[in-house]
């Protein structure tokens, strides 16, 4: 299996994702330059965090016009696996690959800290190694992670089990206090209807090694690998 990590000007977690995938998870990984159209036969694409185009205008608003996004759109429509982390999530929303929007944090400023997440759906390619209801410790680092959508949309996300992660406390309770940014329904991660595109605000690449304080993020990447390998075996 091969991963591609997209590099937009202003991405700053591209190297971190590359390291976590290639060195920690140990899967073949390549960097994809935003001006190219070739996905280099990657089986999964990661849109990393950072500040593409400085977040000028709106987060993700300019990056979505990059040539590589045309290819990623086609890839996703064909069922390809796409994971957007933080700014990558924002780009997926601006591109229409995921529904909803991210508003500025309720506190009005940037927040960098470890948070807890509860796994709401473990039947996605991104969570197949987790138990339902499992509590993960993964850090956030963002200015605009306050998930917003119309109440009808939110209802349908819940009904379709598109909500994959919700912010919770260390015991797995979803409370007002455990919601770091004001996201509706404490949504921290969301897939599209088909389940092959996921966006999440927390950073799995920052919690992929014991020395960084958690290995829960590593399992997000490993889930993708497992899901893909099982599909390959089935196909053969």
């Amino acid at each position: 299996m091969k991963f591609g990590v997209v590099v937009f000007p202003g991405s700053n977690c591209d190297h971190d994702c590359y390291y976590a995938l290639s060195q920690v998870v140990g899967v073949e990984t390549t960097l994809l330059w935003h001006q190219e159209r070739d996905l280099k036969n990657c089986d999964a694409v990661v849109l990393p965090g950072g500040f593409s185009y400085g977040d000028y205008l709106r987060t993700g608003a300019i990056a979505r016009f990059s040539p590589i996004m045309d290819s990623i759109r086609q890839f996703a429509q064909a069922g390809g696996l796409v994971l957007g982390i933080c700014n990558g999530f924002q780009i997926l929303l601006e591109s229409g690959l995921l529904p909803g929007a991210l508003l500025p944090n309720r506190s009005g400023h940037f927040i960098c800290r470890f948070v807890y997440l509860r796994v709401e759906n473990n039947r996605t390619p991104f969570t197949s190694l987790f138990q339902l209801g499992e509590v993960l410790k993964i850090p956030i680092a963002h200015n605009q992670g306050n998930f917003f959508a119309s109440s009808t949309d939110i209802r349908s996300f819940l009904d379709n089990r598109q909500v994959v992660f919700r912010y919770c406390d260390s015991r797995g309770e979803v409370t007002e206090v455990s919601n770091p940014n004001g996201s509706l329904e404490s949504i921290a991660g969301l897939t599209n209807c088909e389940g092959n595109v996921m966006g999440m605000m927390p950073h799995p690449e920052r919690s992929a090694e014991e020395i960084l304080g958690s290995t829960d993020g590593k399992k997000v990447f490993q889930s993708i690998v497992k899901w893909w390998e099982e599909k390959e075996i089935a196909r053969k």
Partner: peptide, 16 residues
């Protein structure tokens, strides 16, 4: 103060 700063990017900060 420090929660407003991204103190983890580059994934090298082992004592936060």
């Amino acid at each position: 103060v420090y929660e407003q700063y991204d103190h983890m990017v580059q994934t090298n900060t082992v004592v936060l």
